[in-house]
């Protein structure tokens, strides 16, 4: 081969830093990435700013009392308090997590560690499919199938056996915080399970082998080595699920009953922050009413931010313990 000829066909090297950077695409690519990430930060700040600005009337009228009072009277007294909605959102989300965490982590363990090969793919696909079902379909199913078939009998049982607790006080309604919480659990379950499975699959095999070679049983290996190893990733999966539960609007609105109930009974109908906004923004005729709804949006936004911040902190602390290994 004539190497000299080939060489002469290549472009001559050029000197000049700026020119080269752009020619190689590094500069333009970096510019694009910086703009995209700045846009993202700007978006979050803009949303927060708008919510803050547009709730000024309500914030000035009620101050911090907005968080602790439960009047919601747009018609006569024009007084607003967000407590029932905050309570409803927190109760349904926490119930959803309590039910969903063991189910979804268990499913993830099964999918990642125990399932035979022929079952792993189809089951994993189904879980991902569940995560992709639109929430209005969950709502419809919840209202017409889930409530009569499961929620009512379960609520009757809980009230009969544990009715002495304020949490399970009667009377029993179909649409309730209980119905919303369990439906939310079903909705966040595939999200947590799918992400947790990927977290477990990403753990190097050497960790499994190390435990088993020490004479650990499979359960000891999973519970003492894999779960702590994947801890930060699993926490991330749970936070992802919690985020979905906090913000879920339509399905919750369809099964929670939309009632300003002030008891803390799970079996009573309730209201969440997301569903009151969705239900009432069209009929918010006075400025104060509309701004009160926007302030609820601001609170929901703030709660989501705070929870994500705490989660980051926890993940960061966990990741520091498993230094250099788990970057999930």
């Amino acid at each position: 081969m004539n190497l000299a000829l080939q060489k002469s066909e290549l472009p001559a090297p050029r000197i000049g830093v700026i020119r080269r950077l752009w020619d190689h695409g590094d500069g333009s690519y970096r510019f694009f990435l910086v703009v995209a990430s700045l846009l993202l930060i700007g978006l979050v700040m803009a949303i927060g700013y708008e919510l803050w600005q547009n709730s000024a009337l309500s914030r000035h009228a009620f101050g911090w009392k907005f968080l602790t009072t439960s009047d919601w009277d747009p018609a006569i007294e024009n007084k607003f308090g967000a407590l029932p909605f905050i309570l409803g959102t927190l109760m349904t989300s926490i119930l959803a997590l309590i039910v969903a965490i063991p189910l979804s982590i268990g499913t993830a363990i099964f999918l990642a560690e125990l399932a035979p090969d022929w079952l792993r793919q189809p089951l994993g696909f189904l879980v991902e499919l569940l995560a992709a079902v639109p929430s209005v379909i969950y709502g419809l199913w919840g209202l017409f199938v889930f409530i009569p078939v499961f929620v009512r009998p379960a609520a009757q049982f809980l009230n009969r056996e544990f009715g002495f607790l304020p949490l399970f006080a009667g009377p029993i309604f179909g649409p309730s915080r209980f119905a919303a919480g369990i439906l939310l659990a079903i909705m966040v379950f595939p999200t947590i399970a799918a992400v947790s499975r990927d977290v477990l699959r990403a753990i190097p095999n050497s960790q499994r082998e190390a435990a088993l070679a020490m004479g650990a049983t499979q359960w000891e290996m999973i519970s003492q080595i894999l779960l702590p190893y994947g801890g930060s990733g699993l926490l991330g999966a749970i936070i992802l699920g919690l985020g979905r539960a906090l913000g879920e609007t339509i399905a919750v609105t369809m099964v929670i009953g939309n009632n300003l109930d002030l008891s803390i009974s799970l079996l009573h109908p309730g209201y969440t922050m997301a569903s009151v906004i969705a239900n009432e923004f069209t009929e918010a005729t006075s400025d104060l009413y509309l701004q009160a709804l926007i302030e609820i949006g601001l609170i929901l936004f703030a709660i989501t931010l705070v929870i994500n911040f705490i989660a980051r902190l926890l993940i960061w602390r966990l990741a520091r313990q498993t230094k250099g290994e788990a970057h999930l």
């Binding site: 050497s206 960790q207 435990a211 070679a213 004479g215 702590p228």
Partner: peptide, 30 residues
Amino acid sequence: EIRRRIGMVFQRPNPFPKSIYDNVAYGPRL
């Protein structure tokens, strides 16, 4: 039981992401 009687050291060091103490105490605790 076989694996308790026949230990193994692998090609790449694979300590658990735990303290030095807990790494060594893992087997006895089992």
